[in-house]
Amino acid sequence: METKMDFLDILASTLHDMKNSLGILFNTLEESIEQCREKECSSYGGFFTLQYETKRLNHSMIRLLSLYKKEKSQFAINVDYYPVDEIVDDIVIQNKPLLSSKGIEIETDCPEGLFWTFDRGLVSGVLENVLNNSFRYTKDRVRISADKEGEYLFLRIEDNGRGYPECMLVDDKEELSYKKTIDFDTGSTGLGLYFSMLVAKSHTNENREGHISILNGGALGGGAFTIYIP
């Protein structure tokens, strides 16, 4: 029987394979960094750049796989009721070593005992992604905050960098098409933005839908990314 190979399927399975290699790379790097720290060797700083880029690659692949699933109508969210501060803490723990290596301070503000219904993996993915951007663009501070606002939970990442370029700003209510944000000159594919919107929109409660906002200013005077979940 002649079966035509679907390019998307090939792409997805290759991505899986690449992700596995990347996982090994990431963890081997972790070990090397650890040994390097103990021996106080000079390449210590350079390793973090490697790790940063590995993470960036990994996030891109997760996004691509999610979009593949969306394309194949296989994208679905899996929600449960989570303590919000635990998610925030997890993200800090994952990213602190990298941020500290560049002298970036990370602070959090999240009330204890706040629970919300959402897909933990997807929302963490969005935040990690934004945080990775902050690593590149902030001066020396990042702030993660979360709380209830009206009937929504918001999770916000702010920095004290120069802020987002005008063309990337997204207002709360504004409907944005993803194509508009592709900018081949700057290398920004807008995929990150599209992924964030996809995740936000997939969270629904009664008639309310999640959304995001990207603004400048905020508590630290730089960029401020917020995801709202109903």
Binding site: K19, N20, L22, G23, L25, F26, N27, E30, E34, T54, N58, D89, D90, I93, Q94, K96, P97, G121
Partner: peptide, 12 residues
Amino acid sequence: LIKPFSKESLEK
């Protein structure tokens, strides 16, 4: 746990 994860995340 989603790969890759850091030593710190697993410990926590």
